[in-house]
């Protein structure tokens, strides 16, 4: 038994990455970022607002949260709708109470099916970013590039039709991209994506697209659904993250300076009655911390561009 000799050849073993999508950067070498008003931690909330067809697609893969039982899967179809009808409005009220503006990553289907929800988001001063067409609109390298281009275009068009302006940001379902995605996003006029969770400050791809890392480890889905921890533990972990980042942000000189604390929320997870109280307390606790700058993705993008 032996392996193909190519398995022991390493054509991309070289200084830097084994790809050319973006350059390497080590935390201690960086010039400190300054967020507005001397705040240390840009706290960015991204809510995924999604519509799951009861007829799931596995091409290129089935989205997280999608249908699980044999057809018709009433339990997951309706439980996801609960998030949009009920949980999301609890979140909108909580954001208003705390005076927080957020980014909502919406499927194009939300705009087509429920335009009033999109108007409620925009009227409250929140930002809409594009989040594919519907939850059958997953992306991977096995999807033909033309199909991916159409999916990005259709998502942006559906949202723009209701909001009257083009979204500046993009969030792929499950953060899954192909090797073509970043170029297709630039081609479609998108300025930033949130899919690459490899850092705690913004950075730019080689083609100019900016990435605002949306830490999947700090998402309600990961902590509450995947790791099966309580909402109280979730809130404790977010506050622990905040306090650590605030400490780093207070360091002057290379390696210190402003940080990102991304909260990725799912209305059908965090928006349940027994979780909302803890979430509202978390918002208040974050707001009470002097380092917090609640910011939409586009606010962070603009601030970062002004100093880089």
């Amino acid at each position: 038994m032996s392996l193909d000799p190519a398995y022991l050849e390493y054509p991309r073993r070289r200084l830097g990455y084994d790809h050319d999508l973006y350059p390497y950067s080590a935390m201690p070498t960086r010039r400190p970022l300054q967020w507005p008003d001397g705040k240390g931690v840009a706290t960015s909330i991204v809510v995924s607002l999604e519509w799951f067809p009861i007829t799931p697609s596995d091409t290129p893969f089935r989205a997280p949260g999608h249908m699980q039982t044999a057809y018709p899967d009433y339990r997951h179809y309706t439980a996801r709708d609960y998030g949009t009808r009920i949980g999301f409005y609890r979140l909108l009220d909580a954001f208003a109470k705390a005076g927080v503006r957020v980014s909502v990553a919406a499927n194009g289907a939300i705009a087509q099916r429920y335009p009033s929800v999109i108007r409620d988001i925009v009227d409250a001063g929140h930002e809409i970013i594009a989040h594919s067409t519907d939850m059958n609109g997953t992306i991977a390298s096995t999807l033909p590039v033309d199909a991916e281009r159409a999916l990005i275009r259709d998502s942006i068009a559906a949202l723009s039709d209701v909001t009257g302006s083009a979204p500046r940001g993009w969030h792929s379902i499950a953060r899954s991209q192909s090797f073509a995605t970043t170029d297709l996003l630039v081609e479609a006029g998108i300025e930033y994506c949130v899919d690459w969770a490899n850092d705690e400050v913004p950075w730019a791809f080689a083609n100019g697209l900016v990435n605002l890392p949306l830490n999947h480890e700090l998402s309600d889905r990961q902590i509450i659904n995947v790791q099966q921890q309580s909402v109280d533990s979730y809130a404790e972990q977010i506050l622990d993250a905040h306090d650590w980042l605030a400490g780093e942000a207070a360091v002057s000189g290379p390696g210190g300076g402003g940080r990102l604390l991304p909260l990725h929320l799912t209305p059908y997870i965090i928006g349940l009655p027994y979780r909302m109280g803890a979430f509202e307390r978390l918002l208040a606790d974050l707001k009470a911390r002097p380092a917090t700058w609640f910011a939409r993705g586009s606010d962070i993008l603009d601030s970062w561009r002004n100093q880089s």
Binding site: P60, S141, T142, S176, F179, D195, A197, N198, H216, E217
Partner: peptide, 10 residues
């Protein structure tokens, strides 16, 4: 399928 963005970026 490559790139596994979540796995790689993590």
């Amino acid at each position: 399928p490559h790139p596994d963005v979540v796995g790689y970026a993590h």
